[in-house]
Design a protein around this nucleic acid. Structure first.
Lengths: 154, 154
DNA sequence: AGACATTAAATCGCACGCGATTAAATCACA
DNA sequence: TGTGATTTAATCGCGTGCGATTTAATGTCT
């Protein structure tokens, strides 16, 4: 590949991923604000709607988040009455996070958010599936590289 | 489309975009850390390498960032000696941001970062171009929706 | 010229997100 | 049994990112 093509690719990849990710987060933020939910809080709720209770690391693994991010986030959700956090009697190191009745109640309210976002993309269903497939490949590659310690000297 | 397909689409879109965006940012963070650069700081530098000086809003427009984010970021970059901020004599409301010699010098050091990231994706050039085309479409749709005030009641 | 609107940055409070460290519980193994 | 390694959360400091507000400079309209 020519050096020019590389420069263009690099430049585009950089800015496109950066600005798209923020545009996406902003849309979700706007849709969730009426319910007092942030985007990451919403994602935690989705996971707890599917399976409850879950440990902090269990949630973190699915979201790619550290306990240093999740602990304060979960405390805010607990203060808001959406979840409860209790030490696991089986293993006192673990904290079991459970969704409350109030947290479950939100499920109906935000049921159409995903649909709403899909509409907002202005893209066809098939195109969105392709995009997600590419993103999954991209994410897989990136995560592998971080693990193997990619550096500029490679 | 069936309700099930919708649920799956919603769920996937949500988590895929969220975790991919963070994986991408983490990789850039790791690659830039040796140079004391954060990812958004790097993006500002790239813009200034292409055109200098630029106003705060000019940079913000290209990155999708507000002055409330850029002002402290630019101050940190100024303290690090990468840029200088001066009021525009033509219009004292504007702040002109210029890259310093030290900021320019970094260009050679991080020249291969984009290439490195492209390698890390494990994807072919053509596939990456397709992905970026999809992302551009996605971003366009999202930004349009935010402007027109999408809500769940629509 | 004077009054009001508009624009550009800056400021503030809040919520992530991470790396590094710490504290407590559990595990492993001699 | 007991001692050191491992695992799990929590804590801390720093850097984004945003909405709302503020301040200063400029534009506009009479």
């Amino acid at each position: 590949m020519s050096s020019d093509a590389h420069s263009i690719l690099d430049r585009m990849l950089c800015f496109e991923v950066y600005s798209t990710e923020h545009a996406f987060a902003r849309l979700y933020k706007a849709l969730l604000a009426p319910y007092g939910l942030t985007y990451p809080q919403f994602l935690v709720l989705v996971l707890l709607w599917e399976q409850c209770p879950q440990t902090v690391n269990g949630l973190g693994g699915q979201l790619g988040l550290q306990s240093s991010t999740l602990t304060p986030l979960l405390k805010r959700m607990e203060k808001a009455g959406l979840v409860v956090r209790t030490r696991d009697p089986e293993d006192e190191r673990r904290v079991r996070v459970s969704v409350t009745a109030a947290g479950k109640a939100l499920r109906a309210n935000v049921h159409d958010i995903g649909r709403c976002v899909a509409d907002a993309t202005g893209m066809e269903e098939a195109e969105l599936f392709d995009l997600m497939r590419s993103l999954r490949r991209l994410r897989g590659g990136l995560q592998g590289s971080v693990l193997t310690g990619v550096s500029l000297s490679d």
